[in-house]
Amino acid sequence: MTQTFLLDGREVPFRDGQTIMEAAAAAGVYIPHLCHHPEFKPHGSCKLCTVDIDGRRGAACTNRAVAGVRVQSETAELNADRLTLVQMLFVEGNHICPSCEKSGNCQLQAVAYRLGMTTPHFSHFYPLRDVDASHPDVLLERNRCILCELCVRASRDADGKNVFAVGGRGIRARLIVNAASGRLADTDLAADDRAVQVCPTGALLRKRQGFAVPIGRRLFDLQPIDAVGPGQESGGEG
């Protein structure tokens, strides 16, 4: 007998151990997210996928589906709160879309489009963050890092390398790399590592590939993020 739960009033089947996010994705239902990727261990840090589970809020990516529960996701209130989270991410870093190679293929931007963000709303932090261009093939642009730890997980679990971690704490948390020099060039990162491909923003970029696709033909110019499909949001190179 298939187990189901209710997602926005619709019956969604799930297997034992599946999270709400996984079951929703399998059923073709999009729940906004940034730190989630179906290939990697759920993390639950961006909190964008927060849903209402029988009247209690929780992250869809880390909460297991339970038979019979009523989950609300596409509500005006949840989307308003998700919008606030995205606005927080925008003011926390230095996200200047017109100058970013990732623009049009960026999940932070695409989620913000979907949630209707017209302004970052809060006061900008304008933090001073290091750009690491030392690596021959990969740029690490910390100004655009949202600390989703997808590269941390991908490097550890898919590439078997442990190139990345989050160092520091609180608002000073930052992406650090596995080298005494602190330079990406001194790690064993390779251009075709999954860690580089899964970055949802322009924090990790392959060099010499920027602006290759003209405006109007980029991933999220063609379709909104909820139509792209799970795991495909990081674009063609993924």
């Binding site: 996200h95 200047i96 017109p98 900008h124 304008y126």
Partner: peptide, 15 residues
């Protein structure tokens, strides 16, 4: 526009 809303390209000088 982007500059009025986020500082935009001129804000690149902020670091």
């Amino acid at each position: 526009g982007a500059c009025a809303i986020t500082g935009g390209i001129p804000a690149l000088r902020n670091n």
